[in-house]
Design a protein around this nucleic acid. Sequence first.
DNA 1: TCTGGGGTCCTAGGACCC
DNA 2: TCTGGGGTCCTAGGACCC
Length: 420
Amino acid sequence: MIALVDCNNFYVSCERLFHPGVLGRPVVVLSNNDGCVISRSEEAKTLGIRMGAPAFFMEELLQRHQVAVFSSNYTLYGSLSQRVMQVLSSFAPEMEVYSIDEAFLDLSGHTSLPTLAAAIRAGVLHDVGLPVSVGVAPTKTLAKMANRAVKKNKLPEGFLVLDSPEKTEAVLAATQVEDIWGIGPQYAAMLHQKGFHNARDLSLVPDDFARRELTVVGLRLVRELRGIPCIALEEATPPKKAVCVARSFGQLLTQKTDIQEALANYAAVAAQKLRAQNSRATVIQVFVQTNNFRGQDAQYHRSVNVRLPVPANSTRELIRHALLALDHIFKPGYNYKKTGITAMDLVPDTEVQENLFETTNHDRERKLMQALDGITRHFAGKPVLRFAVQGGDKKWTLRQERLSPCYTTRLHEIIKAKPE
DNA sequence: TCTGGGGTCCTAGGACCC
DNA sequence: TCTGGGGTCCTAGGACCC
């Protein structure tokens, strides 16, 4: 049997951990740039605040109901996530960290699953202070569904074990197709139109229908609904195949120099991520785009792929090639909203094909980056040392007007138990 | 004024090879 | 009169996830 453990309203719960004053009050966390709602407390859901709702549409509602609003603080959430995963790993040696707030646990061999599920819940609550829900079932897809049923029905015990055909059948029948893991809006519309409305309906479709209409991914999904495991637990996180850094600007930009500065910074982050997983990029893709919500503006979006002479993960080289790529696609006269870089066709650091005509001294580059990473680590990840093209006015930086401190990762921001 | 960011996988179709 | 077949690789686009 497989368990899916998922933190309840994760980002909101993280903020609440350090702001006990907002317990009982509606709380939301906003996306980058304070754009949309990406996490809501139960009270906020009751107010009808939707996932993904733009914050500026709701100023009045947020005020009226005294909603506590936070900018997202991924440093804090990442740190708490690690603590949750550490607790979970003590319950099952085989575990897959599926996302920042979810993990699949292999519970095979255990006899009393309800007892174990309750212990997992209590353990995370006690050791980290975050509430979780636990769904247990024979397959990952059914475990997901059980987990969802816990939350939807607000089961007081906080877990659900699908250990009999009757229980499974009931949850299948109560789950609409759009709420199945792996069925998005497009497939859901198609399935409804063909008369398949809930997960039970979908579990009974013929294999060839699933294969034809939903690809092999859908066929696996249908079998998982029938209790046949088709999606394996992936314990080791495979290295990423692409690394993307893209952000909207805090304000619209027209000057190329401002966009160059932003892009240089994103390229620097991408390079750092590559080094962290010992990869190099063979190709980079750079894009710029205007804000397509502004009907009054002329729209432009374009991207370009550039093959690097030699696979690279040095900040200097990535910035250089990113800016060259930008020269190809930047056109003056537009209000730009966003730029970004994707490092693609990643290869392991150790398997680099040198280029006969390349003049970069890679050994020197590698040592320079080691020094840079060492200094950055020393300052707890703060980019104290930068390239000149990254510096300047920072017209493009994110809006984060309600950012909470990094309580667990920066010593000077640690919470004080007593006023000084 | 203000609408996120970062990923994966699959398929179809074209180019090219022998 | 007759105009193959099988394979690989690449890309773009579409679907999904949190």
